[in-house]
Nucleic acid binder design. Structure first.
Length: 589
RNA sequence: GGUCACGUAGUUCAGUUGGUUAGAAUGCCGGCCUGUCACGCCGGAGGUCGCGAGUUCGAGUCUCGUCGUGACCGCCA
């Protein structure tokens, strides 16, 4: 080793020792007579001291060291006369006898500090420099610990970690596939897995009744702060289990992570049906750190002559505690908020329950005090509360009110990132109607089993069939989801028929799985947790990028290595591909 | 596919109603300084205002296009 110690481990106990350290120059402070240099590595910072009085030549040399130079120093550990309580190594310093520049450095384009002066774009371009910063280092350490604890827990529960292939077959359901041309099979393509779904089911059929994998998945869809084209899942599958067994196992895992990584004990996870989640929160991933549940007002608000309400499919609102004193300006802000195109509400009705017991609303023309009181009672409102009401078509209105509820939660600071409220959302619909293609889509995926009592209505009322599917939700973020799978060929066939597959198509796309079902498939089910999101949640951030060593930007580009990029004519020829002229021209620009 | 925001010194930003020589902080360079740790003090260098076109007597500022970045909607079983 080029060093005897790291830059984070020396302390008052080591005084007098001769040591060799290696690291990067974080900062130098030249005081004239003496020079201090902070030497940094992954483990911390140790101060080096050079003194003109004792070794002028060495001190002169040290003054020339620039930021991010890599140096090796030999010296002795000494107690500082002026200690720095902010640093773990702040009681000591190294009196340097000699040093060597292992590698000089260009001046970095941004400062390598906790609060860097670098913007997002620059930091991504020089990601290897950004990764030297403490906050990112802490995030990757958190990620490592969580992966380790995940493996510890699942190992303790008898799970095997088994790898599955990345070069697989493209399937029509679900997200768009990333595709890889095959040189040896010209004109044919592999797809990268959106998840190891079918393989883990095959592992169940093979008898590996507890499988997991911390695995990369690929989806060629547009990105967000919490979505990358390649991302990591904790992917799991179990045989001979009921839904409760899976929920309990992974509730256990989540609690284990909270306890062993964050030192937080979380309460048992409530279970809420999809219908309840939509009715009371307008979302299939409710943030239950705060209440402000939806209250439906159809029976008290209709028939008062207010057209917007009378014509509405749903009139629904929330009660913001203690907000009756909101000014006209604040209410206008909220109205503008819900009218934004992304939210899509046409307007906002407010109802103030004043401290003096009177009511004031934006619909006073149609509602007398008694009628307003009737509404307020529905909300169980108290004097000082503000009720915010939307009306319109059910799904849209709920969606908009969900956004408003979260906005109010932010304004009232009810969404503390240090509070964790996980829950299970269960009984998802099996199918979802897609307007664009005019057919049903699997809401989860095509292998999800319908609830037993709903199987008989699969063909008659497909939209009402509930699935044995569940999501793990925490603080308004979908952390994971899974289902009990179909393990019966006939039922799987019926499912494919519902999804609009012909027998031939189903056989072509998923024949391998259907055939496997004929060889003793056990009942099975599983779950996949979004590892990047889980780590970001633990780290208290909405963006997963800072928890991935080398992330891509929101156009799916890696700005550091500048990918994707064109490939040579020779490569294209070898693959039997040609690029459309219009596309090629665009790419050149 | 769509909406919005941003793009000015190495970096982060300010820049008024379109008006003379585009500023600040930080970083960088030089000088001074023996206990700093956000060191301090003095001085200095550093600009294709993303790019292109247009409007105008005059554009960092207004308009259009384009590129880049970020956020969101659609999309993401």
């Amino acid at each position: 080793m080029l060093r005897s110690h790291t830059c984070g481990e020396l302390n008052i106990q080591n005084v007098g020792q001769e040591v060799t350290l290696a690291g990067w120059v974080q900062k130098s402070r030249d005081l004239g007579g003496m020079t201090f240099i902070d030497l940094r590595d992954r483990y911390g910072i140790t101060q080096l001291v050079f003194n003109m009085a004792t070794n002028a030549a060495l001190c002169e040399e040290a003054r020339k060291l620039g930021r991010e130079y890599v140096v090796k120093v030999q010296g002795s550990v000494a107690e500082r006369s002026n200690k720095n309580p902010k640093l773990p190594t702040g009681e000591i310093e190294i009196i340097v006898d000699s040093f060597k520049v292992l590698n000089p450095s260009e001046l970095p384009p941004f400062t390598i500090e906790d609060n860097t002066d670098g913007g997002e774009e620059l930091r991504m371009k020089y990601r290897y420099l950004d990764l030297r910063r403490n906050p990112i280092k802490r995030n990757l350490e958190l990620r490592h610990k969580m992966a380790l604890e995940t493996r510890n827990y699942l190992d303790s529960q008898g799970f095997y970690e088994i790898e599955t292939p990345f070069l697989i077959k493209s399937t029509p359901e679900g997200a768009r596939d990333f595709v890889v041309p095959s040189r040896m099979n010209e004109g044919q393509f592999y797809a990268l897995p959106q998840s190891p779904q079918t393989f883990k089911q095959l592992l169940m059929i093979a008898g590996y009744d507890r499988y997991f994998q911390i695995v990369r998945c690929f989806r060629d869809e547009d990105l967000r702060a919490d979505r990358q084209p390649e991302f990591t899942q904790i992917d799991c599958e179990m045989s001979f289990v009921t839904q409760d067994d899976i929920l309990n196992t992974f509730e256990g895992m989540t609690k284990h992570l909270f306890k062993n990584v964050k030192g937080v004990e979380v309460e048992d996870f409530p279970r809420m049906t999809y219908d309840e989640a939509m009715k009371y929160y307008g979302s299939d991933k409710p943030d239950i750190r705060f209440a402000m549940k939806f209250v439906e007002l159809n029976d008290v608000a209709k028939g008062k002559g207010f057209r917007v309400f009378d014509d509405a499919e749903l009139i629904v609102g929330i009660c913001a505690k203690g907000c009756a004193a909101y000014s006209r300006k604040q209410l206008d802000q909220l109205t503008d908020f819900v009218k934004k195109p992304q939210i899509g509400a046409k307007g906002l009705v407010y109802l103030k329950f004043n401290e003096d017991g009177s009511f004031k609303s934006s619909v006073d023309k149609f509602f007398d005090q008694e009628a307003l009181k009737g509404c307020a009672e529905k909300f169980e409102a108290k004097p000082g509360d503000l009720m915010l009401i939307l009306a319109g078509e059910t799904d849209r209105t709920r969606k908009a009110l969900n956004e408003l509820r979260l906005e109010m939660g932010n304004r009232l600071e009810l969404r503390n990132p240090n509070v964790y409220k996980p829950l299970w959302v269960v009984d998802f619909p099996l199918l979802e109607w897609d307007e664009e293609t005019q057919r049903y889509h699997a809401m989860h995926h095509p292998f999800t089993s319908p609830r037993k009592e709903d199987i008989e209505i699969m063909e008659t009322k497909p939209g009402e069939v509930r699935a044995n599917a569940y999501d793990l939700v925490t603080n308004g973020v979908e952390i994971g989801g899974g289902s009990i799978r179909i393990h019966n060929k006939e039922l799987q066939k019926r499912m494919f028929t519902l999804l609009g597959f012909t027998d031939k198509e189903a056989q072509n796309q998923f024949g391998f799985l259907m055939n496997a079902f004929e060889y003793g498939a056990p009942p099975h089910g599983g779950i996949a947790l979004g590892f990047d999101r889980l780590v970001a949640l633990f780290g208290g951030s909405d963006s997963i990028r800072d928890y991935i060593a080398f992330p891509k930007n929101n156009a799916g580009r890696d700005v550091m290595i500048d990918s994707p990029s064109e490939i040579s004519k020779e490569q294209l020829d070898e693959l039997g591909l040609c690029i459309r002229q219009t596309t090629a021209r665009k790419a050149i620009r």
